[in-house]
Design a protein around this nucleic acid. Structure first.
Lengths: 153, 153
DNA sequence: GGAACAAAGTTGAGTGCTCAACTGTTCCCT
DNA sequence: AGGGAACAGTTGAGCACTCAACTTTGTTCC
């Protein structure tokens, strides 16, 4: 291994602040969503992606890609969501290996009910604390990180 | 409930980018740490906090606060870390309810071994992608969020 | 056409987290 | 002093995630 490149003072502080902000924010939103809508954020995101797809359906792999989850994770989640009646799986005609994940009406209704509260949380805990300039900065910073991590892996 | 305050176009994009960046970054670091050092990031953070404390020891509650974890989480983690021989619990003389978490020499050694690789990951996946200005921006944004969420909760 | 390889998705074991309930101790207040 | 509230920490059940192994189907290439 080569000589380790340590973090300087500023980076150290930035990293710790970012770590703290992320943990606090996501833990908070997770808890609110769990409390108000009875589902973890990962499930919420799956429902959102499905609701935005044509015919409210996506192949399992697309769903995994769009929600930045592993196939395994989505597969486990789909089982749970199916039990709850919010999602239905259908076999794919054109590729017999494949499966469609379809958002049910009940799933759509649950999402509609959960969304305002969740959005309110995001507003309150994030955007209300930032200036318009900072929102733009956060976006650019995030996009740089995504651009680096997305293609790889 | 009052009228929901939705996110505008810019906020929507910023939020999704931030979500994606955070998930990708933390998942990646988590996986690297698990692979290279055989521990999740939460455990790494516990070891870090202990290593920085006087005599490498902290009361369980302080440890929970500093690592932004619930007492329960730290308690479960401590059991695991104790099994691994990286941490030892001692009873507190001045408060018989309390317990000290003490970093063992083995724990310190493991942390020393894990740190360079982890820091390298943070560099590569985060700071190498950002300008010095963006690092400063990220810090300010994060501190604003922490300031809002820290006291409450 | 058939063999090797890749892709889609599922499954089970293991692990860490949350939540609520619990024990034991200390603090506070009159 | 004594009773009640608050605090420190642990525990167990339930759930979500990871990793690796697996089945089934599609693709490629000779």
């Amino acid at each position: 291994m080569t000589e380790p490149r340590w973090l300087d003072e500023d980076e150290q502080r930035a990293w710790r602040a970012f770590l703290a902000a992320s943990r606090l924010l996501f833990d908070r939103l997770e808890r609110e969503l769990q409390h108000d809508a009875g589902m973890p954020h990962a499930y919420y995101e799956i429902l959102v992606r499905l609701s935005e797809a044509p015919d409210r359906r996506l192949r399992m792999s697309e769903l995994a890609d769009k929600s930045l989850s592993s196939r395994s994770r989505v597969s486990h989640a789909a089982r749970r969501l199916e039990e709850a009646g919010w999602l239905r799986r259908e076999e794919c005609e054109t590729d017999r290996r494949g499966a469609w994940a379809v958002l049910t009406d009940a799933g759509y209704a649950v999402l509609q009910a959960a969304a305002p509260g969740h959005v309110e949380g995001v507003r309150t805990h994030l955007f209300d604390q930032l200036s318009a300039e900072q929102v733009a900065q956060l976006r650019q910073i995030s996009e740089a990180v995504v651009a680096h991590l997305e293609p790889l892996d």
